[in-house]
Write a protein that binds this DNA or RNA. Structure first.
Lengths: 249, 249
DNA sequence: CGAATTATTGAGGACCGTCAAAGTAGGTGG
DNA sequence: CCACCTACTTTGACGGTCCTCAATAATTCG
C-alpha cells in the first residue's frame, strides 16, 4: 500500500513500523509509557493549564468539567477506558479532568504525538476518527441539554451510560459518578435528579441496585421517555400536553 | 530543530516545504470551485444524507439543525462567512443545513478533500485547527444550554453574536435568524425569547433596532448578566438568591 | 462506632412553558 | 397604491415543573 518511511527526529531514529505494521494503532504510541494511577477526586490537569500531554485512559472513569464565574460547575463529559484525552486542544486545556473511580492512564507529550501523527497516514485517520467521535459526543450533549423535562434528560442519560457500559448483555447500568456529577452534566439540581430516579423506580421502569448502579426493568418505556413520547405507556395516565416546537419552512 | 522528512505515499511524492508554499491555504482548494447560491429557507443538505461534499461559506448565514423524534427542532449552530461545513463528518451528515439569509458557497468533493489534506501537512494543520474550533463551539453551546435563567442564556447569545459580527467596532448586533431559531438554539420558547428581549430593553441594556438587529447600550451589565451575576447592577434591585451548585472536592 | 459526606424527601414559590389573541412586517395581486 | 394575506413577533393569563431552602436518612471512612 504505502511506502515505509524512516522518520528522524531530533537526532533520534524512530522506526515507524519496520517489519510488521507501521504503528498500527494510536494506542501503540501509549503502550510503552508508564502507567499512572489517580485516586477518586484527584485532578489529572486543570482548565487553563498549558496543554503539554495527551492521555489514554487504561481503566476507570473520569469527569471533564468547567467552572463558571459564579462558581457553577458544568460537567462537559465523562471519560472511560479507551478514551483519548486532550486531542481536541490548542495551547491550553479547556476543562479540568478529575478521576471519579480509581484511574489508570498513560501520558504522551503532545508535541511528539503531533509529530508522530503527521508522519503516519494511518494514525492520522485514527486521530480524525477520534476527533469526530468527540464532536459527536459534544453535540449529543447539546441535544441532551435542550431536552425539556427532567425525565427525558435522565432517561437519555441512562441509555447513554448503558450503551457505553462494559456489561453489554446485562440491564445493569453503572453510575460511578455522584448525583451532583449527573446533575451538573444534565443541567439540573441533585434534588431533581434524585426525585426523577425515584419517580422512574416507582413507575417500575428502573430499580435502584445500590446507590451507584441501576437496573433497567422495562426498556421500551425508557426509550419512549427518552424520545419525548411522554406518558402513554406507564404509570399516571396523564393527558398528553401539546407539542413544543413547530417546524417553520 | 527537527529534520525535514520526505513523505511518500501511494507513489506520489509530496514536498513538505520545498520552495514556495504548496497550497498555502485550505480556502485555495475551494477558490476554483463554482459559486453556488441559496435563498433563505433552502437546504444545502439534510441530516442523514450521504456526506459527499465539504462546503465553504462565501457569504450569508446558515443554520445547522437536528429534528427529534417528536418533531422538536434543535439548532446546533449558526454558520457564517469563512466557516467550513462538513469537516467533522463520517459517512453521513448528522444535521440539516439551511440558508437563513441569501447564501453563497463553494463545494468540494469530500474524497478529494481528504486526499489533498493527507498530502499536505500545512493543510492538515489548518484542518485540525478548524476541527478544534468546531469542538470548542459545540462545547460552548453545551455550556450555554446549561445556563439557568433565560436572561443569562440570551445575554450570552447576544455577546456570542456580537463577537462574531463583522461590524466589530459598532454596538449593533445582527440577528438574521428568526426568534424560533434563537429559541431552538437556546433551548427555550419564542415567547420567552421575546419577553426576555423586551425585559433587557426595558432595563436599558439593549435597544431593539428593527426586528433583525439589536443595539447594545450598556456593555458591562450585559456581561455581568452573561456571567450569572444577576441583578445588582441594573433595574430591579432584587435580593440575590442563593448559589446553585457547590463544589465537592 | 461516630463524623462527614452524599442522597432522599418535603414544602413553598419563581420562572418559564402553554394556550390564546392582538399587533407588525412583508409580499402579492387587484 | 392600497387591501389583503401570511408569517412572524409581541403581550397577556395561567398552570406546572423544577429550583430553593430545610430536615432527615443512608453510606462511607476514620
Amino acid at each position: 500500500m504505502s511506502v515505509q518511511v524512516l522518520s528522524i527526529k531530533d537526532g533520534h531514529a524512530a522506526t515507524a513500523g519496520s517489519v510488521g505494521l507501521p504503528s498500527a494503532d494510536l494506542s501503540c504510541l501509549f503502550s510503552r509509557q508508564a502507567l499512572e494511577r489517580f485516586e477518586p477526586g484527584e485532578a489529572i490537569f486543570w482548565e487553563g493549564d498549558e496543554a503539554t500531554h495527551i492521555f489514554e485512559v487504561e481503566d476507570g472513569m473520569l469527569r471533564a468539567l468547567r467552572l463558571l464565574g459564579d462558581g457553577r460547575r458544568i460537567i462537559v463529559g465523562f471519560l472511560r477506558t479507551g478514551d483519548l484525552l486532550g486531542v481536541s486542544l490548542k495551547e491550553r486545556y479547556l476543562y479540568t479532568v478529575e478521576a471519579i473511580s480509581p484511574v489508570q492512564l498513560r501520558r504522551f507529550p503532545r508535541r511528539r504525538f503531533e509529530d508522530e501523527v503527521a508522519r503516519d497516514p494511518r494514525l492520522q485517520e485514527q486521530l480524525f476518527s477520534k476527533l469526530r467521535d468527540e464532536m459527536t459526543a459534544a453535540q449529543d450533549q447539546a441535544v441532551l441539554l435542550s431536552r425539556r423535562s427532567a425525565e427525558e434528560k435522565l432517561a437519555n442519560f441512562l441509555l447513554l451510560m448503558k450503551e457505553r457500559g462494559n456489561s453489554e448483555h446485562r440491564a445493569i447500568v453503572d453510575l460511578p459518578m455522584t448525583r451532583l456529577d449527573i446533575a451538573n452534566y444534565l443541567g439540573m439540581t441533585i434534588e431533581t435528579v434524585s426525585r426523577t430516579i425515584t419517580k422512574l423506580a416507582n413507575g417500575g421502569i428502573i430499580a435502584a441496585a445500590g446507590r451507584r448502579s441501576i437496573k433497567v426493568l422495562k426498556m421500551e418505556p425508557l426509550r419512549l421517555l427518552a424520545e419525548g413520547d411522554e406518558g402513554e405507556h406507564w404509570m399516571p395516565p396523564l393527558a398528553r400536553p401539546g407539542r413544543y416546537a413547530s417546524a417553520n419552512a
